[in-house]
Design a binder for these strands. Structure first.
Lengths: 193, 193
DNA sequence: GTCTATAAAAGGATAGAC
DNA sequence: GTCTATCCTTTTATAGAC
């Protein structure tokens, strides 16, 4: 149990982040409202705005918290391709998170959006991690030298994003199996002349 | 010049579809409003609702019109992988369309959404077309027999979707080059044991 | 930290005139 | 086919009390 002046506020914050996902999971990001989220955590809408100044900040912080947790669980100390697959596998357990990510990142692709910078930084961070994965796989000999790392990373990220959209439409889509196949293709080509 | 009782209505409809894209291009799909679209075509919001009964129907019809046009331009009579690349290359010329597609398809991934069925059918249609492409490439010997067609199609569609999101965030992303690389990988693996 | 109250705006939709 | 007028709903956000 945490103590100190911020313990209660922090706990409420966590609760909000978690409940936001439940609402988004069933209503979608566009139709989810701060009011409903607030009421589900036993607050009024005004009460919720004390913790998050805007709808956009709330959603951004949900995703940021996810990234921190995933990083600790699956990537520390060094990212591997299996860790990447594990993140995706874990995503299939949290539909609200996938929906929020797909919908909110699309919404935020407009440069003026409050969360635009967040997603740009996140992309850079993700690309960095995956580049490291490929380079280490080259060092260990798993993967050959003939790879355009940048192109491979773009494809992995794009496929992961696109597969999440497919998965939202049909939970039978096996995101990890598809990504593994892509990875195998990258490995195969990397050994070619 | 078209004649007949529907000529004017049809022309106005086309104009609305086109202007909707301009608005979505700069405001994004979430912030775009029927009112603004209506005013830009010289109508009131109520006037616009005569042509499209709801926001969702309007956006759905924009995308449907796009698909019909793309199909005529790039896929008739038979789809090829180059036609697929040509569609993507063309997308890079119409940012509003890409933004609408990415944002609206994400929004519509919720089963209750009015456009949900549209996107499901579109997926099936797209998958069909790409499956045909692969099978014909096999017949002509371009591609080997060792392909899981379904998996390859999933990856192509996912990558195309994900790359469009990347491209929205950074127009320097070369969607076609990335997709070509994916295709080359699929071709390479298809010749493996 | 949370509430009440309220603003203020905007959105989508409809009825009925022309 | 389009407008006027209007409705109703919903949303985010703020001010100030407790």
């Amino acid at each position: 149990m945490k103590r100190g002046p911020y313990a209660k506020g922090a706990a409420k914050r966590e609760e909000i982040l978690s409940v936001a996902l439940e609402v988004v999971a069933v209503k979608g990001c566009r139709k989810a409202s701060n009011r409903e989220i607030a009421e589900r955590v036993g607050l009024t809408q005004a009460g919720l705005m004390h913790h998050f100044a805007s709808r956009e900040e709330l959603y951004q912080e949900v995703l940021r918290a996810r990234d921190i947790r995933d990083h600790e669980m699956f990537f520390a100390p060094d990212p591997t391709i299996e860790g990447f697959f594990a993140v995706i596998a874990h995503n299939a357990e949290v539909p609200g998170l996938v929906r929020l990510y797909v919908e909110f990142s699309a919404e935020a692709s407009i440069p003026e959006h409050p969360a635009h910078a967040f997603f740009l930084e996140r992309y850079a961070w993700l690309r960095d991690g995956l580049s490291g994965v490929i380079h280490r796989a080259q060092d260990s000999g798993t993967i050959g030298p003939a790879v355009d790392v940048s192109a491979a990373v773009d494809l992995l990220v794009a496929a992961a994003d696109g597969l999440q959209l497919q998965w939202l439409n049909d939970h039978a889509v096996d995101m990890v199996a598809r990504l593994r196949r892509l990875w195998e293709g990258i490995v195969a080509v990397s050994h070619a002349a």
